Each structure stands twice: as C-alpha cells, then as structure tokens.
Computed example of a mutant assay.
Amino acid sequence: MDLNRFQQQLKGTSDAARPLPPVDKWDPPFCGDINLTIALDGRWFYEGSPIGRISLVRLFASVLKREGDNYYLVTPVEKVGIKVEDTPFLITEWHKKDDTLVLVTQTGDEIPLTSSAQLELRTPPPAISDDKATPIPYICVRRNLWARLHQNTYYQLLSHANEAHTQQAEGGDITRFTIRSGQQEFVIGEVAD
C-alpha cells in the first residue's frame, strides 16, 4: 500500500468546512496492513518516522474506522489496517462553552461532554499506568473511536473536580472525583480510601 496513493484517493473528502466523510457507509475491500502506528502519546508514525504535517494527520484521522479491536484507514475503494497502541486520539486541551465542558484532541476535534455514554473509566496500558492500575477517563470522540486524557489535561480537570467520599456496600470507602458539564455530573476518577 502506497501512502501517497491513499492520500490522493482522499483529496477533497475532508476539510474544516465539510462534515466528516461517511466511513461507516463505506465497505471497500481490505488491501492489507500498512506500517502506520498511532503511538501512546498520540503521535502518528509512518514507516517508523513521525508524520509532521498536522493537516495530513487530520485527513487520515477523518477516515479512521474501528471494527472490533482493529483499526483501518478507509476510502470508498480500499481499506488498510493500521496499529493503534491504545487509542487513536488524545485529549490535550479543554475549555468551557457556557456550562458545557468541551474536550479537544491532538487533531483538533472538539467533543462537548453532554452524555454519560461518552465517558468511561478504563485502566490504561501498563506502559503509562500507575502501580495500582488506577482507571482514568476515556472519551468517545466519534464512531466508536476513543480518546484518552493526556496526563496534564487530566490533572487540570482533577483540580476543578468535586470530591465525594462514599461507603461501599461490601465495606471500605471510595473517593470519587466529579466534574459538571451541562446538567450532568461525570465521574473522572475514583480511589479506594
């Protein structure tokens, strides 16, 4: 698979003024894997070298598709497999718009946090997990594609979080850290006391 040919197939499919391509409706034949990796830190690598052009990364991110545990870049005519070390997106910024928390990925996607289905606490991979394997927030960006909060972003949100202590039915206490977005409370962390 030639990455340049793949890029040519995508010309005109995505830019800032257009909606995302309808990759869920595309079902092209699988053409094999390419040596493209999305690393734990959110950087995209091709043939072991970082892809430095953010416009190219954004283009490829717009045609990213997940099927089961596998990730693909798709065009209307072909589908190629890529490797994702944890999640394809990393939340690197956040801001408030009115009373809604808006999370921003390394590719510029903005995700207003409005539904409990958008956030899950998951244990990150061992390479970035603490000794206790503490779950951290993962955010659904779109189409079953998730993002992990960058450590700095997570700590910033924790500094704005409310803290509540709860006694568990099976014994022991737990401390939950919550943030408010819109009319909902979201749990962004919990630790056993």
Rank of each mutant, 00 (worst) to 15 (best):
P135W: 00
P126V: 03
E85M: 13
S55V: 05
I111Y: 11
Y71M: 00
L20P: 00
G12C: 03
V80N: 07
D24I: 01
L56P: 01
E47Y: 04
K132N: 14
A169S: 10
A17N: 03
A127P: 01
N4V: 10
R122C: 08
S14M: 09
D33W: 07
S115V: 03
P22G: 03
R143M: 09
D27Y: 11
P137A: 04
S129Q: 14
Y46E: 04
A127S: 13
I82F: 05
W44R: 01
A16H: 02
E190F: 09
E163K: 15
T87W: 00
F177V: 04
G81Q: 08
E163S: 13
A161T: 07
K97W: 07
W44L: 02
K79L: 08
D98W: 10
L121A: 09
C140K: 14
K132Y: 10
Q118D: 14
H150E: 14
Q151C: 02
D173S: 08
A147K: 09
D24M: 13
H165A: 12
R148I: 11
M1A: 12
D193G: 03
Q156R: 14
P50C: 02
Q151Y: 14
A17L: 11
G12E: 09
H160W: 03
T92L: 06
F45R: 13
N162G: 07
K11W: 07
I54E: 10
T105D: 05
L149Y: 12
K25M: 08
Y72K: 08
N4T: 10
Q184F: 11
R142C: 01
V141T: 08
V84R: 02
P50I: 12
D15N: 15
K83F: 01
S55W: 09
P135E: 00
D193T: 07
G52R: 14
T105F: 10
A39C: 07
S55G: 09
Q168W: 06
G172T: 06
T100G: 07
P125L: 12
T178R: 13
M1E: 08
A16G: 10
L103K: 02
F30Q: 01
I91H: 07
D33S: 09
V77S: 15
S181K: 13
G81V: 03
K11Y: 05
I179N: 12
T107P: 04
A117D: 15
